[in-house]
Write a protein that binds this DNA or RNA. Structure first.
Lengths: 126, 126
DNA sequence: CCGCATCCATTTTGATACTG
DNA sequence: CAGTATCAAAATGGATGCGG
């Protein structure tokens, strides 16, 4: 074989590699916060919505569905009077959550320094 | 004081907290890959573009500028014939990169399991 | 009232062409 | 080489509606 065509993309740096997709679900605007939020135990939909400032219900349910099909989050339906839907991390999700938590913690810890740098560079928000 | 208005948002879960902004720069579609990519040492613009499959020049320069104003990435200009611009992690960026690397590593490691789960749920890509 | 689907205005992203 | 300008496509969020 000539080895001319890379056969299977192997890392998240390849746009066609499955791990790229997973990374996009997880390292996304809301993914990190949703998963981190679920570390405290199973949460109701509206609790998540209220915990994660600025998220829309649409994005929340969209991301939850995505994470559910990835096997990172489990959706439980309690058929009670006002129907209760609860979301929880799977074992796989718990594992991931630890990594994300350390990321969020680091960001929280260093934000002041970063802010100071940003002031020096001339404030650009976004 | 009546405490009626939350004075200062304190975590990334508040949409107005500065750490939310930082998290968005870092835990974004491209931020994670760019920073991880820079772990190998300073890189030229076109190297980054070619290393990170699927990124557009626009998104690359936009994200690099953002990360630079955050003090995570440094932009160096060599005034040579064809002007050379190099990007490198700052010490702060290096610190962050370790966290992101462990995240990327985990995703790479677990992608097969996640794929299997997704098959069970009925494939939904995106 | 809770969870979510749908429609539409706004924002973000990407492909390509173009400049110093 | 290292970007910026331009325009089209997609993601996002808000409002709204609806079944349970």
């Amino acid at each position: 074989m000539t080895r001319s065509e890379a056969s299977a993309p192997r890392s998240a740096f390849d746009s066609d590699c499955p791990s790229r997709t997973v990374l996009n679900h997880v390292a996304s605007r809301w993914g990190t916060l949703i998963i981190t939020c679920l570390r405290g135990g199973p949460q109701r939909f509206y609790v998540l919505r209220d915990s994660i400032g600025g998220i829309s219900e649409k994005m929340l349910s969209q991301n939850l569905r995505l994470l559910a099909t990835d096997g990172l989050v489990e959706r439980r339906v309690e058929p009670s009077s006002p129907p209760q839907v609860t979301y929880a991390l799977t074992p796989l999700g718990e594992e991931l959550a630890e990594h994300l938590q350390s990321l969020v913690d680091w960001v929280t810890l260093r934000t002041d320094e970063i802010l100071a740098t940003r002031a020096r560079h001339g404030v650009g928000d976004s």
